[in-house]
Amino acid sequence: MIMKVKVRYFARFRSIVGVREEEFEVPEGIRVKELLDILKERRPELKNEVFAQDEDADVNVSKNGRYVSFDDHLSDGDVVALFPPVSGG
């Protein structure tokens, strides 16, 4: 089965991808880390510029506005955001 998830990009990652948000059809119930693998394939620029140096690059992921671990499962309609380490304050 297929489900839809929205992916949002912020700060430098948005500049790299060139869009703020896009929707992906992915296998139902996948984990965050599996979504990241799909994104690396469909968005080679992310693979080259974000995940290039090491697999554990500084990538923060949130699901529906909360930080999640890479092992968390996703559901249909989830909004996943990818962003670099924060620098507010």
Partner: peptide
């Protein structure tokens, strides 16, 4: 805030 809030 500096560690967690998504502001860049």
């Amino acid at each position: 805030v500096k560690r967690r809030v998504p502001v860049w």
